[in-house]
Simulated assay, not measured.
Amino acid sequence: MKLRKSLQAAGALVLSLSLVVGCSSNNPNAKENGGGLSGKIQIDGSSTVYPVSQAVAEEFMKKNPGVNITVSQSGTGGGFEKWAKQETDLSDASRQIKEEEKKNAEKAGLDPIEVPVAKDGITVVVNKENDFVDKLTVEQLKKIWEPNSKVKTWKDVNPEWPDEPIQLYGPGTSSGTFDYFTEEIVGEEGKSRTDYTQSEDDNTLVQGVTGDKNALGYFGYAYYKENKEKLKAVPIDAGKGAVTPTDETIQSGKYTPLSRPIYVYASKQAMEKEHIKKFMEFYLTEGKELVPKVGFVPLKDEKYQASLKELGIE
């Protein structure tokens, strides 16, 4: 499995470009080789969750060549919009579904099922050449990112830092990472300064920060881990000392307030289809072993068991 290659390749894609991973179901022997499973699964949503779903889809299709899975990334909000239009079967999300999104899904005849699949820690990063930012407080982050922020240079954040302009990179407004970050850091979901380079594709943000010595950005932990030789993660101080995002601090919740679960949303209607039911069972059993391989933190086993039960899989 070329997980590293798949993460890096995603950086060349434009917003909402769909990736079809795996093999075709045109093979006349596919049904026999795949244990009788056949069909298509459309997944869209969070670019943060994308590497997990892509990896699981790839492995599932190796075992079930009669099933063809398309994984796309148009942001959590964009994914929920497509899901409510019944353009997709499953929706990747880096935050919980909003009440309005849930109502839209229900109007479309869907009964949403929330499935946590891993833990993430939104990682604040600077360029590798930055030798003065050793930590940031939540208050400093708010000062940088709040609407109508007056922060233009590093010196505006800390008078001991250089009088050089900060170049900001972050998710677009359809991103669940954007929603989560603004709520936890700024204090109100969706409230943010707008004069920064936006993208729903985390790899585009990675490229921006690695190419600019005065850059600061934020995105999912997996994308930092994949590029840690080129990026510097900034420890965050929420009032109890600065904490660096690691597997251990994210799992324990010590990396606060930016540790969070990530999700796949299914529906009771989708789970009535055998190939989707088997895919979700695989995701929460064999598939969970792929979570650390693509840079995320696995949940405790009892969480996966609870989700299997919620999905009607005993």
Score class of each variant (00 low, 15 high):
residue 83 W to V: 06
residue 120 D to K: 10
residue 252 S to Y: 07
residue 264 V to N: 02
residue 305 Q to C: 00
residue 16 S to V: 04
residue 133 V to F: 05
residue 184 E to A: 13
residue 244 T to Y: 01
residue 147 P to H: 14
residue 266 A to W: 02
residue 58 E to F: 00
residue 120 D to M: 11
residue 249 T to M: 03
residue 214 N to P: 06
residue 301 D to G: 06
residue 257 P to S: 15
residue 39 G to Y: 00
residue 229 E to Q: 14
residue 123 T to V: 12
residue 289 E to I: 00
residue 248 E to S: 13
residue 183 E to H: 09
residue 222 A to Y: 10
residue 243 V to A: 04
residue 36 G to Y: 03
residue 234 V to E: 11
residue 291 V to S: 00
residue 225 K to Q: 12
residue 181 F to W: 13
residue 64 N to H: 15
residue 126 V to R: 05
residue 3 L to N: 01
residue 291 V to I: 13
residue 216 L to Y: 02
residue 221 Y to W: 09
residue 238 A to F: 03
residue 21 V to W: 03
residue 311 L to V: 05
residue 176 G to L: 04
residue 220 G to F: 13
residue 218 Y to F: 10
residue 173 T to D: 02
residue 84 A to V: 05
residue 101 E to N: 11
residue 10 A to L: 00
residue 291 V to Y: 01
residue 52 V to S: 03
residue 286 E to D: 12
residue 24 S to C: 00
residue 48 T to Q: 04
residue 184 E to H: 15
residue 253 G to Q: 01
residue 302 E to S: 14
residue 248 E to L: 04
residue 41 I to F: 02
residue 48 T to L: 03
residue 237 D to C: 03
residue 79 G to H: 04
residue 151 V to P: 09
residue 310 E to T: 15
residue 77 G to S: 12
residue 139 E to V: 05
residue 117 V to Q: 08
residue 247 D to R: 04
residue 208 G to E: 07
residue 225 K to W: 03
residue 116 P to H: 06
residue 288 K to A: 12
residue 200 E to K: 10
residue 48 T to D: 07
residue 14 V to I: 07
residue 19 L to V: 10
residue 260 R to L: 07
residue 119 K to C: 02
residue 146 E to W: 01
residue 95 R to G: 12
residue 221 Y to V: 05
residue 157 V to Q: 10
residue 299 L to C: 02
residue 142 K to C: 03
residue 124 V to W: 04
residue 207 Q to Y: 00
residue 252 S to Q: 09
residue 82 K to F: 08
residue 21 V to H: 09
residue 65 P to S: 04
residue 149 S to P: 11
residue 90 L to E: 05
residue 105 A to V: 04
residue 314 E to H: 13
residue 176 G to Q: 08
residue 313 I to E: 03
residue 209 V to G: 15
residue 289 E to V: 03
residue 10 A to H: 11
residue 243 V to R: 12
residue 131 D to F: 13
residue 5 K to W: 07
residue 75 G to R: 01
residue 241 G to P: 01
residue 271 M to G: 07
residue 84 A to Q: 15
residue 244 T to P: 02
residue 264 V to D: 06
residue 72 S to M: 06
residue 90 L to H: 11
residue 171 P to S: 11
residue 133 V to K: 02
residue 4 R to H: 10
residue 179 D to W: 12
residue 196 Y to E: 02
residue 213 K to T: 08
residue 27 N to K: 13
residue 293 K to I: 02
residue 117 V to T: 06
residue 183 E to L: 08
residue 192 S to N: 15
residue 164 E to N: 08
residue 242 A to D: 07
residue 181 F to Q: 13
residue 148 N to K: 14
residue 310 E to K: 15
residue 276 I to Q: 10
residue 80 F to W: 15
residue 248 E to H: 10
residue 175 S to C: 01
residue 193 R to W: 11
residue 296 F to C: 12
residue 104 N to Y: 07
residue 67 V to W: 00
residue 129 E to A: 08
residue 183 E to R: 12
residue 282 F to D: 01
residue 188 E to F: 06
residue 307 S to H: 05
residue 150 K to A: 15
residue 179 D to L: 05
residue 238 A to C: 01
residue 295 G to Q: 06
residue 11 G to L: 05
residue 31 K to T: 09
residue 309 K to T: 12
residue 27 N to M: 01
residue 202 D to I: 08
